[in-house]
Amino acid sequence: MMEACVVGASTGGVSALRSLLRGLDKGFRPSVIIVQHTATEGFNVLVDLLRDSCVLPVSEAQSREPIQPGHVYLAPPRYHLLVERQHRFALSVDERVCHVRPAADVLFQSAAEVWRERLAAVVLTGANDDGARGAALVRSLGGTLIVQDPQEAEAPEMPAAALRLAGADHVLPLNRIAPMLLKLAGRANA
């Protein structure tokens, strides 16, 4: 059963994330952890935006914070976000990965090591190749990889790069990703 879901998004990601989160219901128990690349520091705006689109609680992940089920977390701007074995967050200002910080690769890789087959990773629209290496590790440790269909993604490069390097368990249009997550979380009739 899926315990956590990590999501990576870049160009076009904000509207994709809103649409994805709108599809999750109050009974969704896995933790949802999101890296959205952003050029600005005004991340609280994004937290507010996503909060409006989601029935689950949404907040910025804090250093050392215990990760709660049924909660949506966003990586803070300019910090990498990692998951530690005790299911707590860690931040880092180590160098950029794929020219970005936070990087989905960093989140995915650390989360994969912790949750293994109980993790789902989602690669959404984006114009770079961040997330692909992390996605490969998620799959190789038994987790489930969902990639947004590059043909309908606003920017196809990121999902396409993940598909090239990691393949995928599911390639789906955006509106079918939330139903798939509900199904992986064991929600009835999803």
């Binding site: 990498h80 990692l82 998951v83 530690e84 074995r85 860690a90 880092s92 180590d94 960093v106 890789q109 650390s110 090591e113």
Partner: peptide, 12 residues
Amino acid sequence: YAPASFKRRVLG
């Protein structure tokens, strides 16, 4: 040291 970021640095 926090293990996840330390491991990343060592692999780096």
